[in-house]
Amino acid sequence: MHGLMSLVVGALFAAGVYLMLKREILHVLVGLTLVGNGANLAIFVASGARVAPPPLVPDGLDAPLAGHADPLPQALILTAIVIGFGVLGFALALARRSTETLGTDDLDRLPTTEGQGT
């Protein structure tokens, strides 16, 4: 399963990169989100994902069931998901602002300071 999921993670990265190399800002953002998803899955897969009971302590016990899933990567990924969500939200606002202000969603037409002195 590890091999299969390595393939999936690689595919998510490849798809994300392919989209990021497009000119339209929306596709770039979708690509970045895919790469983010890929990174989260990579952590999960690399740290030994398998079908297992969740890291919850059942009533009456003082530790999760034997063979439970590793809680630490879950906490890390959860943090990363929320951070990714926040950053994506800002990026969306930026994309919208950029399209409105610059009148294009074409990344090849972004102005730079060179030759634009007032």
Binding site: M5, S6, L7, V9, G10, A11, L12, F13, A14, A15, V17, G38, A42, V45, A46
Partner: peptide, 8 residues
């Protein structure tokens, strides 16, 4: 993608 897949 291949690089990341291989690393994982």
């Amino acid at each position: 993608g291949g690089m990341i897949g291989a690393l994982v």
